[in-house]
Design a protein around this nucleic acid. Sequence first.
DNA 1: TTGAAAGCGCTACCAA
DNA 2: TTGGTAGCGCTTTCAA
Lengths: 342, 342
Amino acid sequence: MSLRTLSAHLGLSMAAISRVLSGSPAARSIPPATQERIFAAARELNYRPNLLARSLRRGQSTSVGVLIPDISEGYSAHVLAGIEETLSAAGYTLVMITHHYREEVLAKSERIFAERAVDAVILVGTNLHVYGTTPTVTVSCPDSHPGVTNIVLDHDRAAELALRHLYSLGHRNLAVIKGYKKSSDTERRWQSIERAAAMLGMTLPEERVVQLDDEQQTNEPGYRAMKKLMHQSREFSAVFAFNDVAAIGAIDAMRDAGLDVPEDVSVMGFDDVAFARVHRPSLTTVRQPLHRMGVLAANAVLEKLSQPGEKQTDEVEVVVEPELIVRATTRAATVCAAAEAA
Amino acid sequence: MSLRTLSAHLGLSMAAISRVLSGSPAARSIPPATQERIFAAARELNYRPNLLARSLRRGQSTSVGVLIPDISEGYSAHVLAGIEETLSAAGYTLVMITHHYREEVLAKSERIFAERAVDAVILVGTNLHVYGTTPTVTVSCPDSHPGVTNIVLDHDRAAELALRHLYSLGHRNLAVIKGYKKSSDTERRWQSIERAAAMLGMTLPEERVVQLDDEQQTNEPGYRAMKKLMHQSREFSAVFAFNDVAAIGAIDAMRDAGLDVPEDVSVMGFDDVAFARVHRPSLTTVRQPLHRMGVLAANAVLEKLSQPGEKQTDEVEVVVEPELIVRATTRAATVCAAAEAA
DNA sequence: TTGAAAGCGCTACCAA
DNA sequence: TTGGTAGCGCTTTCAA
């Protein structure tokens, strides 16, 4: 079922039919009666324009490349859902690549996006690679780049919310589980935590800081990190984990070591993924509006595509606000821990 | 950077270059020296073939349509990850549509897949819609269809594993939370449960059966279902939930009603999604090899595409085996419950 | 061993 | 108001 067949069937030129069916402005000069006839025939013969051909001709594919670390759980999935909803409602298709932090995939992504002629690229939780002149939007990218819109959480605010909460509960000796070194938020978040700690007069000695050794979205990296932390120090009454899964892993490790959460130690997660609320004890955490960040990224792409030619060269940051979600893993520092701090 | 520019640059015909770069068999008759020259130039000038043009010409797009209920958590995400890994390793791209069980989206999906000229379609957890002659693979589709390969769990075996486990712990009075009515596994699973119950001599009176009222992947539908169940009957010592999130919702509802799991009631989940292990108490559940089901679906697609012409007309079922994962939410029936059953 | 040219299905320019 | 036609970038047949 191509335009040619339809044209033969209707006795009209392919040009006329194309104009009507693709909603071209030139269709205004075609009488309503003819238009109706065309629509009817298209419906009846079940005609679907071939988007490959249209894309080739128009030089745009109505598709957007999306590069994410993973889909199977948590962070990326929430963002991706927001992106998918928004872009597919606008008629776009995603060319999705998951990289699992592997260099080869990241390198190959550029080639794939170029071959598929995507109109724009969205990078989620990934350090920026080069995509030439393709309009680019990033989510949680650590650095700014000319012409790139970056959707980021206000990490300073997030760290402040978390630490103020712990401080107000009497916690002075904080331990931190930093993110996996390749995760895009790791450095930025850490700097914000240092700043907030300094502001509140909380110290963060080296032995109370550990780092996730894997990006794996299970509790294991958090479990290992906590083991290591407890080996280095016992002088903490609260732990701030890089994300919710790590927090849960940490809780498991402490339980196995005979420590109760929140009785002995308070734990703070990050992200507020779906199971944070469902976990027992339910997780106190800092919510990132992940779904909305996906929507914002998609909208930024759509905006860029709606005004072609206007090559922006300055970097734009869209900052979203975190939210403190207080649940069951944080409570007032025990007398003992408070005494230590004094 | 098109073939034409490359051709001009090399002083060779587009035909020759195309043959070499696309790995056509006809390239064998081109001397290695020339081939090397072509590869070098392509690399140097950063040439990427336009896949839109190639697809148009070849009549195949190296893309596969994937229709899933949702991406943000659990079931679909695990399957999707398996599909994505396998197909992207084979050079395919996904055209992904999430339908959230909405009829309009399901209807529109056919049009989108046709327009994007996907080579095949994979439907996950979705009742089959019509995709004409496009090679189709389904995951957990309730019915069989001519020419369609269906990847399914052995539900009879799954129900038997679960019920035998509960039976062996002394449970006789079982309650069941059926799946959301639109979920593709609901009916099939329910029939298997009835069969297994009959086999073991366990009864399933109406008042001990409830149904999820939403497909939402949170604990709320399970919470509501359990509330309703407790309103209808208290004569059960074990609950078999349709999936893990529902099981967790049910546990919450029982806790709020003063019942302890597993002390008073045993709970059995389904799927073994990531947080089932992490939840406290950790969930006894029937594991579906979701990731592998995704891989199998993708492989079935690749196989179909590798042997064109061979139109299969008989339905093929690929049956995968469930696995009983015993954790902390099931234990021996209390004396009281056992006495009631006697 | 290499090249010329047709044509995949569509859109957009120019002409009528 | 409508139609003819060139051409998007590629592959592949046929000819040399």
